[in-house]
């Protein structure tokens, strides 16, 4: 009798789970829902952008939008090229700041820095990434522009150069951190091979480690650039309020004058008092253009990473 009871108890212990399986299922759904949120939001945004843009193109000739060289809300001239000029300027200039400095910082952190120096510098760079971008914007306006003026550059109060420098500084941590990850992943045996050949540290870093990590490094550049394209607050604060077409007659003048990239042009549209109807709708067309550009760049980044990745051992 007593043995029977024990047997039943043992059976109970392994069959009658206290809601474990049910709870597991619940956790699974909750976690799945969380993972789905970002996808759903992305799809929602794409849907809103596309429908908004289609509505806009119903009222405004797409050719006039994509090829239009004039942006004037009051006159209903909604060509995107001036704002695109602003975006290109900011992106190229900030890349010129962020790529050399970011790659040099990554090389230092990965190849040169002592563990102590790395333990201080890496978190410091992450802090740079954590500063709200509006702060960078005011910094550009209040410090960088006067600083450039003090050097005799004919910069306006709002200008492309100081905003671009700050955008560049903002994306340095992205370049350096992702590039450093790629460089740290290069197997030590390759460094040993370089040193064994009588290469200096610099020769090993530039001739062995960077080429071996080039796919990760390039994709860090592209991700950082797409971040620069999408950057809004710095340019809204420090770059001015009127999109300007690139002037090829005086290339440098483009840098010292104000301009407005697509991102902050969208802000202006939201705030504008007369923004209704087709003018308001143009925001979606600009947003869609931005989205397509950054999305394409992320695809390119993934493609590069996959195409040029070397498999070791």
């Amino acid at each position: 009798m007593s043995t029977d009871t024990t047997g039943t108890d043992a059976a109970t212990a392994i069959t009658d789970s206290p809601g474990g399986a049910k709870r597991e299922r619940l956790y699974r759904y909750l976690l799945f829902a969380s993972a789905s949120v970002s996808i759903l939001v992305t799809l929602g945004i794409v849907f809103v952008l596309v429908t908004g843009a289609l509505e806009f193109f119903g009222q405004y000739n797409p050719l006039d939008f994509f090829l239009g060289t004039e942006w004037n809300i009051d006159q209903h001239k909604l060509g995107v090229l001036p704002a695109l000029s602003g975006t290109i300027l900011v992106t190229v200039l900030s890349a010129m700041v962020a790529i050399p400095i970011g790659l040099a910082a990554a090389t230092y952190l990965s190849e040169y820095a002592s563990p102590r120096a790395r333990s201080i510098l890496k978190p410091a760079l992450e802090i740079l990434a954590g500063i709200p971008t509006v702060v960078y914007g005011y910094f550009a306006l209040v410090y960088v522009t006067p600083f450039l003026a003090a050097f005799g550059l004919p910069v306006g109060t709002f200008n492309v150069l100081s905003a671009s420098i700050m955008v560049g500084i903002m994306i340095i941590p992205m370049v350096s951190s992702l590039s450093e990850d790629a460089m740290s992943a290069v197997p030590d045996s390759l460094r040993q091979a370089g040193y064994g050949m009588g290469a200096t540290k610099y020769e090993v870093s530039t001739g062995v480690v960077i080429p071996a990590a080039i796919s990760g490094i390039f994709s860090s550049f592209i991700l950082a650039l797409s971040r620069a394209i999408g950057e809004t607050m710095i340019v809204a604060v420090a770059m001015g309020q009127s999109p300007q077409l690139l002037q090829f007659a005086e290339p440098l003048a483009n840098l010292f004058e104000s301009n407005q990239p697509m991102t902050s042009a969208m802000i202006t549209l939201v705030q504008a008092e007369n923004a209704a109807g087709v003018i308001y709708q143009s925001m979606f067309a600009i947003g869609l253009t931005l989205f397509v550009v950054t999305f394409a760049m992320n695809l390119v980044s993934n493609w590069i990473a996959a195409r040029y990745r070397e498999e070791y051992e």
Binding site: L190, P211, A212, E310
Partner: peptide
């Protein structure tokens, strides 16, 4: 070296 380590 012990393991072949050609550069990529």
């Amino acid at each position: 070296f012990q393991h072949p380590n050609p550069f990529p």
